[in-house]
Amino acid sequence: MEYCIFVEPQLGMTWDQLLAFAQATERLGFHGFFRSDHYTQPDRSFSGAPALSDAWTTLAALAMATERVRLGTLVTPVTFRHPGVLAVQVANVDAMSNGRVELGLGAGWNAPEHEAYGIPFPAKRFGLLEESLAIVTGLWTTPPDETFSFEGEHYRLDRAPGGQRPVGDDVPIIIGGGGPTRTPALAAAYAREFNTGFVADDVVAERFARVADATQVAGRDPESLRLSVALTATVGATEASAKARADAQGRDPHHERANGLYGTPADVAERFAGLRALGAERVYLQVLDVTDLEQLDLLAEAVRLAG
């Protein structure tokens, strides 16, 4: 199973902290380093000093500051960037990283964040997501000597030049969520990975089953779609230190134990085994305290215990 560190810079993470987390992620042997794509918290506030950062700008810098770890977003809202521009940006960062980039793409949800920056936030955004996926993948697969055009309800491209190709065959696309029908169908059509998170194991199992059915309906081998889970990590060397971390973050230990990664490294390793049994092939370990590098060491220990 693959293990990736996942951070939320909108909680007040400075560039120096982001860099330190990414480099520690690589040093400790994790598979990937992923970040959210947000500018503010849902209420536009920060838990620490404001530290506004743009996901793809910082990932470009991290591509140059790391050598091995996979890099990407969970997830980029389609409302933030025109899909034609996004295709170029992501392909650029993929080249900078020598093919280590992955794109999580979603419909977006944080309305106040959009209002703060004057970014349009239509009530119905799923069509934007569908067309964005078609455009991004279309541009990436267009040869350098050809052009790509698209006519949709939301976007129109007129003979955009090809050649915006990723280093490898493609940039893996991650699609996730809890939608019962349209989300699994989009994952089956476009994604390398389906992600769900922050829910109990029975819900994870239900969502994995739905997306497996969708891939079969689409005529695709379910084994070709990686299944992943994102969970908040609240880990301590002892049960008492884990509780202290939960208390400091205002999180309920009972809720974290049921819906996240909570406890000692041995407890977390046991949860990893349960997720593997559900079919998860990758886990995103969400670390909310942007100053707490020690948790990465504890999570690396959990990974070693999981084997």
Rank of each mutant, 00 (worst) to 15 (best):
1 M>P: 11
10 Q>H: 10
109 W>K: 04
269 A>H: 10
200 A>G: 09
23 Q>L: 11
51 A>D: 08
279 G>H: 04
292 D>Q: 03
77 P>N: 04
10 Q>G: 01
106 G>M: 02
203 V>E: 07
173 I>C: 06
255 H>F: 15
46 F>L: 01
54 D>N: 14
263 G>A: 09
179 G>Q: 06
71 L>A: 05
178 G>W: 11
6 F>S: 03
18 L>I: 04
102 E>P: 00
10 Q>C: 07
172 P>H: 06
80 F>Q: 12
179 G>L: 08
270 E>G: 11
162 G>D: 12
174 I>M: 13
281 E>D: 07
157 L>A: 10
153 E>M: 12
224 S>R: 12
161 P>Y: 03
169 D>K: 13
247 D>C: 07
81 R>H: 15
125 R>I: 05
219 G>A: 09
259 N>G: 08
71 L>I: 09
265 P>S: 06
40 T>W: 10
189 A>L: 13
115 E>P: 00
288 L>F: 01
5 I>Q: 02
13 M>H: 00
198 F>C: 05
83 P>V: 10
68 R>C: 01
264 T>Q: 11
109 W>L: 03
180 P>Q: 12
197 G>S: 11
164 Q>Y: 12
166 P>G: 07
109 W>D: 06
132 S>K: 03
252 D>M: 06
134 A>D: 14
302 A>G: 02
300 A>M: 13
126 F>K: 06
161 P>H: 06
59 L>A: 04
109 W>S: 05
233 A>H: 13
266 A>W: 13
48 G>N: 11
129 L>E: 02
116 A>C: 10
97 S>D: 09
247 D>Q: 15
91 A>H: 00
25 T>C: 14
14 T>D: 07
30 F>W: 10
202 D>A: 10
267 D>V: 02
69 V>C: 09
158 D>K: 15
127 G>V: 08
237 A>E: 15
188 A>R: 09
